[in-house]
Design a protein around this nucleic acid. Sequence first.
DNA 1: TATTGTTATACTCTATAACTATA
DNA 2: TATAGTTATAGAGTATAACAATA
Lengths: 150, 150
Amino acid sequence: MNDSTTPPEPPSDLGAAASDFRMATFRLARRLRAQRAVDTMSDGQFAVLAALKVFGPHTLAELATRERVTAPSMNRTVNSLEESGLLSRTPSLDDRRKITLDLTDEGRAVVVETARRRDAWLEGALAEIPADERATLARAAKIMQRLADR
Amino acid sequence: MNDSTTPPEPPSDLGAAASDFRMATFRLARRLRAQRAVDTMSDGQFAVLAALKVFGPHTLAELATRERVTAPSMNRTVNSLEESGLLSRTPSLDDRRKITLDLTDEGRAVVVETARRRDAWLEGALAEIPADERATLARAAKIMQRLADR
DNA sequence: TATTGTTATACTCTATAACTATA
DNA sequence: TATAGTTATAGAGTATAACAATA
């Protein structure tokens, strides 16, 4: 294996800084995603459960928009979660074309448990780096959230 | 949220920090990914070109390990990039089981251009935040790279 | 025999287009 | 006609298992 690879150069301008930061974000996201190997739930499924937990019931179209996928794609995700008994699909009262999607009690439990499991690896990693680096990441997290919401 | 029931483990700053940071990373990665809608190259293909540019020539197994995919999966990605003329595949001189994968001149040009296009949104966003926040993100990028390589 | 790359095959997730039912 | 959801189908991207070439 190629162990003596050269690390990327330090950023010297805004363009390089953007590039480094973008690559770091993608790499870490991928690494974090790889940690979910233990559970069978996909990122898309988990994101739907998490959205329902945080923001409450949604229609199909609302979920699709929030997760930035198409309605058929979201429909498929919702089908599998419904089959697993993690969410409920009920016709809306006011407009019977719409459906109301919400977590079941089991779904609520599963999303909490899954989030904890997925945090575990990162928590372990954070425990082993210096406190000042943890502080940097905590500050960065806030900035990143703001950037993502632009 | 759990208000009346106490969780099994004591509340930990590290756990909350891990959760916040993980969510921020995913959200930003997703936001950045949405920005690449214009070009046809997948994240996986682009990551291979970028790795070859930053770290130089690789064998197939080295690339697969670096990108954390299986050899057949990487082989497929490499095939499509070779067909597009963006990388070259040559038998290694010392061990003829191995192949050496490297960027072509066109591949080198494409990775630079694609990176610039993909960086554009983030670069614009970074230009509008305070310098101390940019500095925080630059420090965070280094730490994140290290975490991802654990 | 072990290792490197490759092919065969299947599964998951995503998308577009077409269909239904309701408004 | 327009909208919400669904079904049909196809295209990426990934994986495991089996194979070929070389060491």
